[in-house]
Design a protein around this nucleic acid. Structure first.
Length: 224
DNA sequence: GACCAGGCACATC
DNA sequence: GATGTGCATGGT
């Protein structure tokens, strides 16, 4: 909690999903799931443009997206990059949900965390980070999201190694923090904020991964 | 013009 | 099992 306190002091509450403005009967669950796929290796600002296009075109339900063609979907999500790949991944996800529960994504997400994670990972195009993002931010269940920033920042502070795999890093965090969905939600967002500000990939981080940076809010902290 | 962004699947060795 | 590659837009 030492790191979290330091990050929180520096950046304040990040207010990632779900937001008070999350629209519709599903509390924004569908939008969060779509965003989780669209943001793969992509700047969030570009994802927002793609989501706005989907919203404006009425792609606001599982069945609505299920009914549309790959080409139309791809055209709308173009600003998020990798649009052909992501259109296919969105379709894979939507088809899976539609065949399981029809339009009711809340029901789809409402199952034990481990079972939900396994099911999401079985869908082509959904890897561990995307699955965990959906579980934490859309389903509101306790699972930690590990991304490139997480590994960079934790490596810098000697809490993991660059070669540690996803599950190992996830375990470091989950075993060090109280199991609290709201905390894990904001903790991941704080890590991203720190990463953007203080731990860019090259050249700084890879050349001197363990040296503290000036003004790093977590300088001197050595526990999560 | 180069680098980066809230990854993933697939091919190849 | 580890490593390399394709996918693509938009901001800095």
């Amino acid at each position: 909690m030492e790191m979290y306190a330091a990050m929180r002091r520096r950046f304040g509450h990040q207010g990632w999903w779900p937001t008070a403005a999350s629209p519709g009967p599903d509390d924004g669950a569908l939008e969060i799931c779509l965003g989780a796929i669209l943001t793969q290796n992509t700047n969030w600002k570009n994802v927002e443009k793609a989501l706005a296009n989907l919203c404006q075109a009425g792609y606001t339900s599982v069945s609505a997206i299920h009914a549309k063609s790959h080409a139309k979907l791809a055209a709308l999500i173009r600003p998020a990059g990798y649009f052909n790949v992501k259109a296919k991944r969105l379709k894979n996800f939507i088809t899976h949900v539609y065949e399981a529960v029809g339009d009711d994504i809340k029901t789809f997400l409402d199952r034990p965390t481990a079972a939900l994670r396994e099911e999401l990972l079985s869908i082509n195009g959904i890897g561990r980070e995307t699955a965990d993002s959906m579980i934490l931010y859309a389903a509101g269940k306790a699972t930690f999201v590990v991304d490139a920033y997480t590994v960079r920042v934790l490596t810098r502070h000697g809490l993991c190694a660059p070669e540690d795999d996803y599950e190992a890093v996830k375990e470091v965090l989950e075993s060090s923090l109280p199991q609290d969905v709201a905390l894990w939600n904001d903790f991941h967002a704080q890590i991203v904020a720190v990463g953007k500000e203080y731990c860019r990939p090259r050249p700084r981080c890879e050349r001197c991964p363990l040296e503290p940076f000036p003004h790093d809010p977590m300088a001197g902290t050595n526990q999560v």
